[in-house]
Simulated scan of single mutants.
Amino acid sequence: MTKLSKRVLEMEESVTLAAGARAKALKAQGRDILELTLGEPDFVTPKHIQQAAIEAIETGKASFYTVASGLPALKAAVNTYFENFYGYSVEPNQVVVGTGAKFLLYAFFAAVINPGDEVIIPTPYWVSYADQIKMNEGQPVFVKATEANQFKVTVEQLEAARTDKTKVLLLNSPSNPTGMIYNHKELEAIGNWAVSHDILILADDIYGRLVYNGHRFTPISSISETIRKQTIVINGVSKAYAMTGWRVGYAVGQPEIISAMSKIVGQTTSNLTAVAQYAAIEALSGPQDTVETMRQAFEDRLNTIYPLLAEVPGFEVIKPEGAFYLFPNVKKAMEMKGFSDVTDFTTAILEETDVALVTGAGFGAPENIRLSYATDMETLKAAVARLKEYMSK
């Protein structure tokens, strides 16, 4: 008899982490792997943020437990950030800090989902959403965002998916993996639909500062007071501040839900590492010029690599507006190479070209692959050149 829980036996492995691990294993064997798998900036944490952490260590401030839901100073820094980039203020009881945005997504589902509750997820979607919902005995309901509509869903699609069990709409804009952004008009329509049916909005805003070529990120929580009251915002410092290793996330929303999430944090992880909290205070409330420097670098990479990838035979790609991923449709490419399964095709690319990509299957997109341009230009150009050579054979 198995000793493992039904919950873990039914859980899927993260395809992004699996692809990254496979690439690293092949690198360790001496192969020249060009890794475009993980959503991790290749920049190091800015010096002023590093210095804030060093100061916290040297003065002893980082040596002790903090309040489980986060340092008051960090909650104040979140408020400063929201005043600057969301256009409204938040109170301390509207903020909870946790061990990465990923864990706070889990804490949210644990706080609001009862067995059988449904969560609407537009596809393609980030790989962990569905399993986190299932882990909390909820039911993910997928609504396909088509390439014809720029990978965005409509109110009509959402209404067709709604049932009396629908409790949450999950909205990720800019999107991982597509990089597409919902505009003000689209968000207003979706937000008002959710309010009219008393559906919570979970807004994953982690890529909100990384937008390109004149596009603009509009937080759905900034549209109106009524939509804001229906919305829980998940954000963090990993992407915009090159702090993936620090694992700092935060959630902002109505006190009742934030209090419930804080209880879950208190009974699981306890407080986020203290030194990381002091670093995050500096990130959110200190100088922001390094964010713009990194954003411009990503924009340059996108504008350079996108047309090159579009020339790869069989690859059809929509130019993203934010985040740092390209998500080409490779249906024609698979047919050209004799594949019917995108995961098998992605594996073949790795084995034959030493380019590590991520299968779209884990994102609910069986005709796509994801590549990250959060790495240096030389690697990106070399990887696309290998893909073009492979597909030209």
Rank of each mutant, 00 (worst) to 15 (best):
I349S: 05
I234H: 04
F324T: 13
I113V: 15
L380R: 00
E137T: 06
F108Y: 14
L309D: 05
Y88F: 07
G236T: 12
I120F: 10
P320N: 05
E316T: 15
K24L: 12
L202K: 04
I264S: 02
M391W: 09
I264Q: 06
V275E: 11
T166R: 06
D42R: 03
S14K: 10
T59L: 00
F324L: 11
R301E: 02
V233T: 06
Y250I: 12
S196E: 14
K388A: 03
R22V: 06
T37M: 08
A374C: 05
I281R: 01
E83P: 02
V90G: 01
A280L: 01
Y125S: 08
Y88P: 00
G30E: 00
G338K: 02
H197E: 12
S14F: 12
L17I: 15
S221I: 07
H197Y: 14
Y125K: 09
V8C: 15
V44M: 12
A148M: 08
A189P: 05
I181E: 05
I201L: 05
V8M: 15
L169R: 07
G338C: 01
K47T: 12
F109H: 13
Y241L: 02
Q150R: 13
Q296F: 11
N329P: 02
A361F: 14
L387K: 00
I349H: 02
V95N: 04
F363P: 07
G87D: 12
A361E: 15
R301A: 05
I318G: 09
I120M: 12
R216C: 10
R247H: 15
K239V: 13
M334L: 04
I232C: 07
V330H: 01
T123F: 07
N368S: 06
L74F: 01
V233Y: 04
P287G: 09
I257C: 11
K337F: 04
F339G: 03
D131N: 15
A279M: 07
G214W: 08
Y325T: 13
G60P: 02
G60K: 03
M261G: 11
Y306A: 13
V291I: 11
K388G: 02
L371D: 04
A101H: 10
N183P: 08
T226Y: 02
V153R: 08
K239G: 05
Q132S: 11
V95K: 05
D354I: 03
L74S: 00
Y88T: 00
T304M: 06
E389T: 15
I349E: 01
D198E: 12
E316H: 15
T123I: 13
V342A: 04
I113L: 15
I33G: 04
A73E: 15
R301Q: 05
D117I: 14
F82C: 09
K134P: 08
G338Q: 01
A19D: 03
T166V: 04
G362R: 11
Y88A: 00
E292Q: 08
V127R: 11
D32P: 03
L104C: 03
Q267C: 10
K381W: 00
G245K: 03
H197G: 13
S5W: 03
L302Y: 03
E321I: 05
V112D: 12
T231D: 10
N176E: 15
E91L: 14
R386H: 04
R370N: 11
K3G: 14
A276W: 00
